[in-house]
């Protein structure tokens, strides 16, 4: 279901400390090609100095993020 003005996203409670539920790692290395699905969020820095996030891949049966 697409995000729409008439159907606001359902609330998912963050962790008690407000932190992300997803593992993140920081690296000052140049980004490299990622092979295969990534099951955690990875953060790198591109050659031009900009941040780059490789998103977490969600399996079809993964319901950790509610759909609208």
């Amino acid at each position: 279901t697409d995000l729409s003005n008439t159907a606001p996203p359902s609330k998912v409670q963050p962790e008690p400390d407000g932190s992300s539920r997803h593992e993140m790692s920081n690296s000052s290395k140049t980004s490299s090609p990622v092979k295969g699905p990534v099951y955690k969020q990875i953060e790198t820095v591109r050659n031009d100095g900009k941040r780059r996030i490789t998103p977490q891949f969600l399996l079809p049966q993964d319901t950790s993020s509610s759909k609208l």
Partner: peptide
């Protein structure tokens, strides 16, 4: 406030946290 590139993006569902 911030901008970030997200990739690579293969077919499928993806999730990330943007702060």
């Amino acid at each position: 406030l911030d901008s970030v590139y997200v990739g690579p993006v293969p077919e499928g569902r993806h999730m990330f946290v943007f702060q």
